[in-house]
Amino acid sequence: MILNECQIIERLTHADPDKRLVVTPLIRPEEQFGPTSLDLRLGTDFQVMRRSNVTHMDVMKPTEALTREMQGVWRELKLPPTEPFVLHPGEFALASTLEFVRIPLDLAARLEGRSTWGRLGLQIHATAGFVDPGFEGALTFELSNVSMVPLQLYPGVRVSQICFFHTTATGLPYNKKRFTKYSGKTTTASSAFFKDPEYARIRNAQQRGTQPIG
């Protein structure tokens, strides 16, 4: 069941802190609420990929070396509220919501773009629009401009909307999972794909000289 505006308010003001949905700040709710959604705003920090001489991400390198390499590839930008981030055609950048979001254990959420921006060619996520119960922090935008003109994006503009679904309470909330990489982040975080445990296993298998099955 998708929550309507009154149900969202009910959860935002729930007397039980464990059931309370947190979305803060709510700056102009009359503009942000839809019948079954709440608009979220663009934050102030961005990460863009530099042009570099790195030919590829060699995931078999040690994690520390990869972390350093990734830091060299991504450039962080922080903008004041009156300065735009310009996303050029075909460009990809990471950003995050201005709002801090905490999803209680019996709700899940989906982050979507707003039609207003979709019509201009802005996509706010590539594949990862689902938000698990127990998530807390700023949600990440995977921004891309599929139009032919550069887009000016000011911090604070409503580029996305979030809707909430009721679920039975999970025993595996996002913030308690053993293998979360982005829980509690309040800033835009680049991918930590190389920290997925599979790579350590593959690396170890390579070092042991394991042959392919069959």
Binding site: G43, T44, L98, E99
Partner: peptide, 21 residues
Amino acid sequence: QQQDYLLIKSLETTSVHQVLL
């Protein structure tokens, strides 16, 4: 570190909030 992040993000966020008001 967690508290620093929250304080820094709060400072950034409030500056945007002020502009939007």
